[in-house]
């Protein structure tokens, strides 16, 4: 039983990571390396929380969170796509800005908790049939609606990227903007749309933390999860389905150190906490040693596109 409750908790811990990772996958697939995930998550977390407290309406809270994340991404997009600023530095600036924004907005929210009506809305629901599957049901299908939304987003994103015409265009834009341009695909438009939708997903990930996971406002509620999401994108090889698995895995690693304390292990939880990063580095190295063209990430990542330069 302990194991099942651990896995179920890992899924919950992985959900904010999942949204942020999916958002960053979408962003990176279109060739934007936005390192401002942490900032967008914080913006989403604080706006979602504020709207939730003001309106007591969970839907408006989520829309607010997505709007805030998307707004961060628009700033990023305008600077990097239209003005061709350096993507790494712009992303870091967005993180600084987002953290400042969240701390500022959250100043008056510290100590406030999520209203009961919304807690009820976000409380775990056992899905019919699926929830009754032994083990699997308890781990995956007796969760809160947000978790289910995460599953759905991952699957929809997978279908979108791999089975639709527009998803194909996203991949072409990210891999080789020159080819996309020559094929008549509008590079800037695709970059903008996917960067903004990606930002909105990051905002949702933040909102999960403040509205469901904690559920109260605390300063720096993301605690570096945005950066883990960036790592997870690599770990998942830019694949939404693998991100689903990766998020659960990283979610598990997030809580395993804490849970293992009960077992009086020889290995410190802090050493175990390094695992996600070490694993990610290994993935990076393997991808580069194999010179893999499929799993190395989009080729056009981080490079602004300018037709006349070709």
């Amino acid at each position: 039983m302990a194991l099942i409750s651990f896995f179920a908790a890992a899924v919950v811990a992985g959900t904010p990571l999942l949204f942020a990772t999916l958002g960053e996958i979408l962003t990176e697939k279109s060739g934007n390396l936005n390192l401002g995930v942490e900032g967008m998550m914080l913006m989403g977390a604080v706006v979602g929380f504020q709207v939730g407290i003001m309106t007591q309406n969970p839907y408006l809270a989520l829309i607010g969170a997505m709007g805030a994340g998307g707004l961060g991404a628009i700033i990023y997009g305008f600077l990097t796509i239209t003005l061709r600023a350096n993507q790494v530095v712009t992303g870091l600036s967005l993180t600084i800005f987002g953290a400042g924004f969240a701390n500022y907005m959250g100043q008056k929210l510290i100590g406030q908790v999520v209203p009961e009506s919304m807690k009820i809305f976000f409380r775990p629901v056992s899905l019919p049939v699926l929830g009754d599957i032994p083990y699997i049901g308890a781990i995956f299908f007796r969760q809160d609606p947000f978790v289910y939304l995460g599953y759905i987003t991952a699957i929809v994103l997978g279908i979108y990227l791999y089975h639709t015409q527009y998803g194909l265009h996203v991949r072409v834009v990210g891999e080789n903007p020159g080819a996309a341009d020559a094929s008549g695909v509008s590079v800037s438009m695709y970059k903008y749309i996917h960067c903004v939708v990606g930002g909105a997903l990051c905002g949702l990930g933040g909102a999960y933390l403040s509205l469901v996971y904690v559920p109260a406002w605390q300063e720096n509620v993301t605690a570096g999860r945005g950066w883990i999401a960036v790592a997870l994108v690599i770990f998942a090889a830019w694949n939404p389905y693998k991100a689903l698995i990766g998020a659960c895995f990283f979610g598990g690693l997030d809580i395993v150190g804490f849970r293992l304390q009960a077992f009086d292990l020889k290995i410190s939880q802090y050493i175990i906490n390094m695992l996600p990063y070490i694993v990610t580095i290994c993935v990076l190295i393997i991808a580069s040693v194999r010179k893999s063209k499929e799993y190395g990430g989009p080729k056009g990542l981080g490079i602004p596109y300018f037709r006349e330069e070709r």
Binding site: H163, Q165, V172
Partner: peptide, 9 residues
């Protein structure tokens, strides 16, 4: 790539 006739592949 670049076709716009359909939604799904």
């Amino acid at each position: 790539a670049g076709e716009k006739k359909q939604f799904f592949l």
